[in-house]
Amino acid sequence: MVFNKRLYSKHLYRVKYVPPKHMDLSKLETGESGIVKSLQPHQLSVKLSEMGLLPGRKITVLFKAPFGDPIAIDVGGYVLSLRRSEAQIITLMD
C-alpha cells in the first residue's frame, strides 16, 4: 500500500498513521522467524502450499541474495528459495 504523505499531512495530520496490519514473508529480515497464517489467492499459492508452506508452519529466513531478492527460508528442515514477489503471497501471523 502506498502511503501518500501529502494527503496525510493535509487531512489526517492529527491521526496517527498506522501501517497496514499485513505481515508477509517478504518483510522478515535475515534470521527472523514467523508462522504462516494464510496464502493469498494467487496463481502460485498451490505451488507454495505443496512446498510445505501451510498455515501453522514456522519458517525462518536463512539468508538473502545480494539486493535482498530472492530469499532463502527454512521450511521444516529444508531450504527453499523464492523471490520477494513470491514471498508476498505468504501472510504471517502478527
Binding site: 496463481q43 502460485l44 505451488k47 507454495l48 512446498m51 530472492p70 532463502a72 529444508y78 531450504v79 527453499l80 528459495s81 523464492l82 523471490r83 513470491e86
Partner: peptide, 11 residues
C-alpha cells in the same frame, strides 16, 4: 504458466 523461482536449495 507463470515464471517462478520457488526452488529447493539442496545441501
Amino acid at each position: 504458466s507463470p515464471g517462478y523461482l520457488i526452488m529447493e536449495m539442496p545441501e
